[in-house]
Amino acid sequence: MLTPEPQKGNAELVIEVQDLVAHYGRHKVLDGINLTVRAGEIHIIMGGSGSGKSTLLRHLLGLRRLTSGRISLLGQEIEGIHRQALLELRKQIGVSFQGGALLSSMTVGENVTLPLREHTRLDESTMAIMARMKLEVVKLGGFEHFMPAQLSGGMTKRAALARAIVMDPKLLFFDEPSAGLDPVVSAELDELILRLRDAMHMSIVVVTHELESAFRIADRITVLDGGKILISDTVDKVRSSSNSRVQDLLNRRPREEELDADAYLARLTGE
């Protein structure tokens, strides 16, 4: 594993992960993860299926208990955090889930206003205006009365993004923005992510397995494989990495499994 680049200057860290270890039952899914995300950067967490990237995201969001290690978001330790403090922290974080996770019983507009309704005392008309503003940002103006089931895949992701940014979060998480979308819609979403960072000065963490999209928008990339970080560095350094596994992933070369005849036989016979 290549060690992460030492911190430059006084760049504020919005995410700090140290020696994170996580298990699913007895199976170790994350092993010794060290990761930093700086304020104002777009950080891509990349890896194939089963690399542990979704698990890492769930840990960063405080949705799973860690086995050991520590995670701090916006300067706050996640483990053992008080309920009220976690609530305050979550008001500063936006998350766009892979499938959108819009509440299906509500219209798009109601979904987008939900965080405002729960966490602020704004009146209805102000909330409606704010929701429309955010829907305009994601180019969904006029769709506030639609139900989530009436939206296409790309529109659902954009609506979820509008809900994620409605509280003007400092930190935005985006899970698989390109999954299941055609290249044009996917490129539009990439543009949107770049605009959000520039216009709203958000720090953005994107979890993806799409190489093209990753290189288009990333400031820094973390590559996960088998629950470990292969490299966490700038785009250029990741590209020129000498690590063969990183190069395999970048060039979409399948991993060649070394076949041990005895082990193979044991696996087949179930012994």
Partner: peptide, 8 residues
């Protein structure tokens, strides 16, 4: 999960 991370 979405509700949780929205602080709801």
């Amino acid at each position: 999960d979405a509700l949780r991370v929205m602080g709801i």
